[in-house]
Design a protein around this nucleic acid. Structure first.
Lengths: 192, 192
DNA sequence: TGAATTTCTTGACCATCGTCAACGTCGGGG
DNA sequence: CCCCGACGTTGACGATGGTCAAGAAATTCA
């Protein structure tokens, strides 16, 4: 149980096997069917989740249609940090794009885990940093790069996405419409 | 000394006057002349700064010209969080747009302050959350709203910016060129 | 105050984007 | 096995954006 999560913990923290066993105590495995929602806009996000396999899409509704803001795959942490921290309603829907398995911990359990083993606080801080870095990277790219540059960067770093995820979601992530992404790809293909 | 910072602390934490006095011990006031740099791209950011008065512009160079990514005014915290936390080189230049006064604390002093009075850890967490929320808000707006929507939102929430900050920097922040912002304003003005 | 610099606006031109609509393809569910 | 729906592509069109260049307006500084 929670093998992948434990491996991730062990890679970052120096934990005894007793400490590592705490993961089984406080985390819970959840299996989401394709298209199932992990969290809906307006709810309070009271869990922090580690994606074991599959993919979670974050989106919100803008004038009635969906805007995909992020995609998270195995090894990533997913939560609405503001909602989680402050208990306010969250802004994003979190939906499984594929059959997805996650290891989740509730806020209450997380705090208990911190008490049981303070080393995990370091881990918590690192999760926050991961989420923050992701957000600032997105903001910087959206503010400074052209759609084409963003597309090429994504293609270079995460070519696998295009095999797994419908392009319309990727287009959203790049800040353009699905049609524009299709044309952008066409233009680039024509050039060589 | 540090009156504004202390007021901000007191508003968020319940501190005795002895605890509040720690601010004077660990923080340092800095005065930046107009156009002075607080931090340059590539350096390690080892301070966390509270803007007392004035304005800090964050920008980075993209193909030789500047991209303003954020503007911070009195009451905001400024740092390159990733660089600060991990000791890596920062990505942004931080420049005073006006004569600016800040209360700064180094990483070393911050850790010492946490030891001297753990209540400040809560404050530290809140700073991180403020920075994170700012970054995600920017990312969401850049990904989902049109330049015009972003402009109108900014005008509604921070109309004062346009009195203080050159439009070319605001244009950058909105993700468009200075000329486009000028035209956008022209279009909107023509409509009423 | 007056000159120099910076900032803002405007024009011209082309590239790209969003939208609406139509159409072909593919894959899963009945 | 077939059909329906989701997905990707393409076309047309108007709107908007980027860039380069020039000039007007405002600000700065000596």
């Amino acid at each position: 149980m929670h093998e992948e999560l434990k491996a991730n913990c062990s890679a970052q923290l120096d934990l005894s096997s007793a400490e590592l066993a705490l993961v089984d105590v406080y985390f819970q495995e959840r299996i989401l069917k394709k298209k199932a929602f992990m969290l809906e806009e307006g709810e309070v996000c009271n869990t922090l989740s580690f994606v074991v396999e599959g993919c979670i899409r974050q989106f919100h509704l803008k004038d009635g249609d969906e805007r995909t803001c992020d995609l998270s795959f195995a090894g990533s942490w997913v939560t609405d940090l503001k909602s989680f921290n402050q208990g306010t309603p969250c802004v994003m829907n979190h939906q499984a794009l594929e059959a997805t398995r996650i290891s989740s911990i509730t806020k209450k359990h997380l705090l208990a885990l911190y008490v049981a083993c303070p080393k995990f606080e370091t881990y918590g801080r690192m999760m926050t940093e991961q989420v923050l870095e992701r957000a600032s990277g997105l903001a910087m790219s959206l503010g400074s790069d052209s759609p084409q540059e963003r597309y090429l960067k994504l293609l270079n770093t995460r070519a696998d996405l295009f095999q797994r995820v419908p392009q319309k979601y990727i287009a959203n992530l790049l800040g353009i419409s699905a049609e524009s992404l299709s044309r952008l790809r066409g233009r680039l293909a024509a050039k060589r």
